[in-house]
Design a protein around this nucleic acid. Structure first.
Lengths: 105, 105
DNA sequence: AGAACACTTCACCAATTGGTGAAGTGTCTG
DNA sequence: CAGACACTTCACCAATTGGTGAAGTGTTCT
């Protein structure tokens, strides 16, 4: 569900993790490092992102490497696109009309 | 904060409210009607959306009319744009390389 | 084999969230 | 002015969330 995706993004730490992962893969330790946070807390945060389908985890040696699943963001893009395209086709036109910017009529 | 915005969108009822308001203004009653939910619950949901800056409320007679604040979504658009533009400029190129689709080099 | 490392799982806690019914506030209608 | 109407505020509740320290798991290093 889309609300689950937004729920996963509804936390500054997790948003920062997404930002970090958008620059490339990272281990749990690398993700935790900039945030004054304990390992269990980061495990939970990444768990939320994995459950929402935004991130994948795999074991590499004794580390765990996390990767962003770009496909998961297409749903959000779609939703936002639908929302804003509607405005562009109706509200903006109406505003133009109200302002009198009706040159092309 | 962006995480607050996502937090406001992290609920199916509130997502439906946003969808409804994208088609035009609506009263609290109109917003509550399709969701088997009590008035206090809808007051809370809309309150969350107002606090996040996504919606404005104004009294009209004895009803309360809600309106979407489109500007609030530009922050999300910006964030999503940054995220995906990065993939388009690097990851896709890398994948092309790995697949051997390097015709234009 | 034993120690160090990089997490994860396991209680556990305080704060927040989504819901409720009951009572309160402001507005229109007869 | 009395009642109906459209909410909102007020406790209150159960479930979820974000955090912790302590103990457990799997991997590498010596």
């Amino acid at each position: 569900m889309l609300s689950t995706t937004f729920g996963a993004l509804a936390d500054p730490t997790r948003l920062a993790v997404i930002g970090r992962l958008s620059r490339g893969e990272a281990t749990m330790g690398e993700l935790a490092e900039p945030h004054r946070i304990t390992p269990p807390a980061m495990t939970k945060h990444v768990g939320v992102l994995v459950d929402a389908g935004l991130v994948t985890r795999r074991r590499v040696g004794r580390t765990v490497v996390c990767t962003l699943r770009q496909e998961a963001f297409t749903e959000v893009e779609q939703w936002l696109g639908d929302l804003t395209s509607y405005w562009n086709s109706t509200v903006d036109r109406l505003e133009e009309l109200l302002r009198g910017d009706d040159d092309d009529h």
